[in-house]
Write a protein that binds this DNA or RNA. Sequence first.
DNA 1: CCGGACGTGGCAGCTTGCTGCCACCGCGTT
DNA 2: AACGCGGTGGCAGCAAGCTGCCACGTCCGG
Lengths: 221, 221
Amino acid sequence: MTADKVITVRGDAELVARAGHLFAGARHEFVCAARDLDTWSQPEARRSVARRMPGPGASGLAVKKLFTPVALADEAARAHLREVLTTGVEVRISSTPLPHETIVIDRRVMILAGRDAPGPREYTVATSPTLVNGVYSLFAAAWDAATELTAYLRGDAPNLDDDSRAVLRALGAGYTDETAARHLGLSLRTYRRRVAELMDALEAGSRFQAGLRAGELGLTG
Amino acid sequence: MTADKVITVRGDAELVARAGHLFAGARHEFVCAARDLDTWSQPEARRSVARRMPGPGASGLAVKKLFTPVALADEAARAHLREVLTTGVEVRISSTPLPHETIVIDRRVMILAGRDAPGPREYTVATSPTLVNGVYSLFAAAWDAATELTAYLRGDAPNLDDDSRAVLRALGAGYTDETAARHLGLSLRTYRRRVAELMDALEAGSRFQAGLRAGELGLTG
DNA sequence: CCGGACGTGGCAGCTTGCTGCCACCGCGTT
DNA sequence: AACGCGGTGGCAGCAAGCTGCCACGTCCGG
């Protein structure tokens, strides 16, 4: 039995001081998962790290960033992400919550952030191969299940109302239009209008395509 | 800055000796992610742990198990999983690889297994809250994206032939039946027969449902 | 009060999807 | 040759989906 250490630091400044060199040391891959873009809220910490990071496009460094839809809340964030895309960074959106920020560098080091709380934020740095590989494979699973940012923005039916969701459920249940309409208290005409609107929103040319899109976007629940 | 320890043990026996009490101490939740069912290959280790685990159904202990399709390879494994289901355990299948087994108990302890390798297997046990919470949220993301075992077994279209895939692509492309049939060199009648067969295979009552299923099962590529 | 915008629903007519029936063809078996 | 079998395709008819048109309400802002 052996015992490795994991380091816990409090606050961005200490993280930069203790682990900044890890960011600079990224050789092949830099992956991170986070809820939104607010991680490095302190500008000086962000700049400090950015200065040390190699250029994303250069040197064969693959950068993958996984966010939740929260990261697309305001237009500024969208613009930022679009810009990030142009530098060769892969960005995906996961429909499931990612409350704890996770960073894995070169599959050798990982940094996990504690939940937002009053006081300085806690970061935990670990290098145990088993630990890092385990986290990495979970990240990979979440990554694979997430959708490309561009696809997400394109096919996004941003906030379809409850009506549309009800229509979606009826369609997914396999009801015929007539029973679905009756079930929803709508006329056949209106129900079909709704379906047409939905298909329009999903940019689907057929009901099959609409189902496909709905499935891809995880609108089943 | 503080330093927690993570414990690494080699082999099932040592894991049971060092961490067996953690299994017994599960109070609220026991989640694990693994590639297949071979984890506790050594029967004595499996039994030793099973003996210490509280009954899954009893005592409000929620048990979640996430596997890859590999876990369904042989009929014995399927039967075992079906039996497990009856004891109140939730089982889901993730289409992405999960090379490293992960266990999280009560969101307080986690155990990560190293990749299969010659010699005794390594297990890493950690209790750092930040670490455990981070891993847990990644697990949750993978879990949410996975499909229920029953749904997976039901909707499984094991090996549909190239023709069916072509039909699927035509449907996904949004072609009308006529153009799709022409495009595939089939008569309209036959094409529709194929579509009907496909919908039958997917147990879909409408084309929308078929699209949904196809999306869920990742048959788009 | 009037007029317009908007959502709804009925009607009609068209397109598309769906399927039962039958006929045909190629193939291997008897 | 005769037969059955499985895949194909035409035809017909029905069911379902789709949409333009118009009419009727409601809800404003004028």
